[in-house]
Write a protein that binds this DNA or RNA. Structure first.
Lengths: 336, 336
DNA sequence: CTGTTAGCGCCTTCAA
DNA sequence: TTGAAGGCGCTAACAG
C-alpha cells in the first residue's frame, strides 16, 4: 500500500525555499525569518506533514524506543509491570515496544534480534524459564546498548536488575500469622527448583526460626503448582493428627483453592484455620472470605526498571550495576 | 551512549569487495560467488553484524511494524486482545508496538502521532471513552495507512471493525436460565448510556420476549457499576414481594459480588437463586460456587483485527469495510 | 558475478 | 537569514 507522505522537499518546492529552511522552521530553529517560518508551518499543517522519525533516527542513531520482552502476558503480573515501565518511558519521551517470548527460548532470541535490528535504545527483559544461554543478550552489551533485567533476572550477566524481595515478603506474612497467635503454620509451596518458591519457603522458615517455632517438615508441602492435585495436599494437611492452624500458600491461586477445599470440609476461615496467599491477585479480594496476602510492587518494578534503563541510556557510558530489591506489602483482609 | 554498529561498509572494506556484493550476500541474493559469500557471511557473524532496519525501512517505506492503542491495560481484557494480535502479527513478520492511552483522549492523540511519525504500517485501536473527535485517526486513512478498530469502535469512520456480539451473548445466557426453568430473571445492568450495557440488556429483554416471559421493569436495575452500592440493589431484589429466581449480571465482578451478598443472607446458589455473569473473568472459576458466565473471544478478537489489518496492508489499496461480530460462548459452572 | 551510481528523508556542517 | 553539499546505512537500478 503506497503511503502519501508529505516531505520537507514537497514543502520547500511549493514555497520555493530550500529544504534547510523548511527543516529549520519545522524544528523550531531560531534563525528563520518569521514570515517564511509562518508560511512553512502553515503549509505543513495544511498538508498534515509528519516528521519521519526513521530518517532522523538514522542520523542521530537514537530511536527513542525502548524494547521490553516479557515471558507471558496472560496473567496480570507482567501487564502491571509493563504499565509502570510505559509510564516512565513515555514521560521521558520514549516509545515502548513490547514483545512476548511466550516462555520460549527461541522466541526470546528472535525477539531480541528484532529489537537489535530496530535499533532500540535500551532493553528491559524478564527471561523465560528455559533461558540458559545469554548470547542474545550479551550482544546488547557488546553493542553498548543498555539492558536492565526485572523479575526473572540473569545472574550471569553484569547489568542492573530489579526484583521483588520474596524472602522478605514471605517472612512478613508468616510473621503476621505468628503474631496473630498461630502456632502450627503450614506452607503450601511451589517446586523447590523454582527460585521464587525457594525464597518464599526460606522466608517462611526463617520467620518460624526467629520466633522459635518448630519447623515441621510435615507441614511443608512443595507441589508442582498444578491446582488439580491441590485437594490431595490440603486434605492431607487437614487430616494430620496435629493439623495446622494456618496455611501460607506460595501464591494466591493456591490460597484461593485451598480456601474452597477447606470450606467444603465445613471448617471456618480464619477461626478454624487461617489462610494467606502471595501476590494479591485480582481475585484475592473477591473470594469469601477475602484473602489476606502480600501485594507485590509490580508497577513499581516496571517504573524502577524503566528509570534505571533511561538513566543508563543518558549516562553515556558508565553503568553502575545495581540490584534493586523491592519490598512487598501486607494486605490484610479477612482470611487471616 | 555511542553504539558500536558494524555496517556493510566495514565488512566491504575488510574483505575488499563492494558494498553491493556484501549486501547481496547478506540478503541471500543468488548471484554471488559462493566463496566470497561465505567469507562475507562468516565475517558478518564474527563481527555480529545486524542489519539496520531503519535504513531499510527508509527505502522500502515499510517498517513491518503495527501499532496498537488500547485504553487500559490493568484488567485482563486488553492484554488478552493484545496476545491474539501479537500472535498473528508475529507470524506475518510484523512487530507490534503497544501504546496505552489510559482512557485519556489527549494521550490517544499523542500516541497516534507517535505511531505516524514512526511510520507504522497499520494501526489497531480501541478508543477511549472520551474520544469524540477522530481527526487523529482519519489522518491515517488520508495517508493510506490501514486502520482497524476493535471493541470500542468509531461509528463515524469507514474502517474494518471487530466487536463482540453483546446482544447475542446476553440472549444466550438468559436463554440458558430460561431453559433451566427460571421464571423471574432479574438483570443487574450497567448504565444505560453505555453501549455494552444497553446491548446486553436488550439481549436479555429479547430473550424473555421470545419465551413469552414478562419483562418486569421491577427486575431490571441499571446501576453505575460502582460495587459499593451493589448490596442495596441486590437486597432490594431479594426483598421484593415476588423475588427473582435468577440474576443475570452485566459483568462478572457484579455477579461475584452479588453471590457474596446473597450467600450472606443465607440463600443457596443456585438452588434458591441462580446467578450468571458476563465475560468470564479470571476470578469467575475461583469463587464459590464457580460462576456460570459467558466467555468473550478476546484473543480471537485480537487475532481477527490483526489479520484484517495485515490483509489490508497487503491488499494494496482496495479495502473492504467489514464489521466482524464475534460470538461469546457459554461457560457453564455451578452458579446456575 | 561484481562494481558504480543514485537516493530514501532528514539533519548538519559550511559557506554565502 | 538562507542555500548547497555531504552523509546516516542500506537497496535499487544500471552497467560492466
Amino acid at each position: 500500500m503506497k503511503k502519501n507522505l508529505v516531505t520537507i522537499i514537497d514543502i520547500a518546492r511549493q514555497l520555493n525555499v530550500s529544504k534547510s529552511t523548511v527543516s529549520r522552521a519545522l524544528t523550531g530553529h531560531p534563525r528563520v525569518h518569521p514570515e517564511t517560518r509562518d508560511k512553512i508551518l502553515q503549509l505543513a499543517e495544511e498538508w498534515e506533514y509528519q516528521r519521519n522519525m526513521l530518517s532522523i533516527s538514522l542520523i542521530t542513531k537514537r530511536t527513542n524506543t525502548i524494547g521490553i520482552i516479557v515471558p507471558e502476558i496472560q496473567s496480570s503480573f507482567f501487564p502491571k509491570v509493563i504499565m509502570g515501565a510505559q509510564e516512565i518511558a513515555e514521560k521521558a519521551g520514549y516509545n515502548l515496544v513490547i514483545s512476548n517470548s511466550n516462555e520460549c527460548y527461541e522466541t526470546e532470541v528472535a525477539n531480541a534480534k528484532v529489537m537489535l535490528a530496530n535499533q532500540v535504545d535500551g532493553l528491559l527483559i524478564s527471561i523465560t524459564k528455559q533461558t540458559l544461554n545469554f548470547n542474545h543478550l550479551t550482544i546488547f552489551q557488546r553493542k553498548s546498548i543498555p539492558i536492565v533485567f526485572f523479575n526473572r533476572v540473569c545472574d550471569e550477566m553484569d547489568a542492573p536488575k530489579v526484583i521483588v524481595d520474596d524472602f522478605d515478603s514471605a517472612f512478613k506474612i508468616t510473621e503476621y500469622l505468628v503474631k496473630k497467635g498461630r502456632k502450627r503454620i503450614a506452607h503450601l509451596g511451589g517446586p523447590v527448583n523454582l527460585k521464587i518458591s525457594e525464597k518464599r519457603m526460606n522466608g517462611y522458615i526463617a520467620c518460624l526460626s526467629k520466633y522459635q517455632l518448630p519447623v515441621d517438615r510435615e507441614l511443608i508441602i512443595n507441589y508442582d503448582l498444578n491446582l488439580e492435585k491441590l485437594p490431595i495436599y490440603v486434605n492431607h494437611l487437614l487430616n494430620l493428627e496435629n493439623p495446622p492452624d494456618a496455611i501460607f500458600a506460595v501464591n494466591d491461586p493456591t490460597a484461593i483453592d485451598a480456601i474452597r477445599i477447606i470450606k467444603k470440609r465445613g471448617l471456618r476461615i480464619p477461626d478454624d484455620i487461617a489462610v494467606v496467599g502471595f501476590s494479591d491477585d485480582y481475585a484475592a479480594s473477591l473470594v469469601d472470605p477475602p484473602l489476606t496476602t502480600v501485594s507485590l510492587p509490580l508497577t513499581e518494578m516496571g517504573k524502577t526498571a524503566s528509570q534505571l534503563l533511561i538513566d543508563q541510556i543518558n549516562r553515556e557510558g558508565q553503568q553502575k550495576i545495581i540490584i534493586k530489591m523491592l519490598k512487598g506489602e501486607l494486605v490484610i483482609r479477612e482470611s487471616a
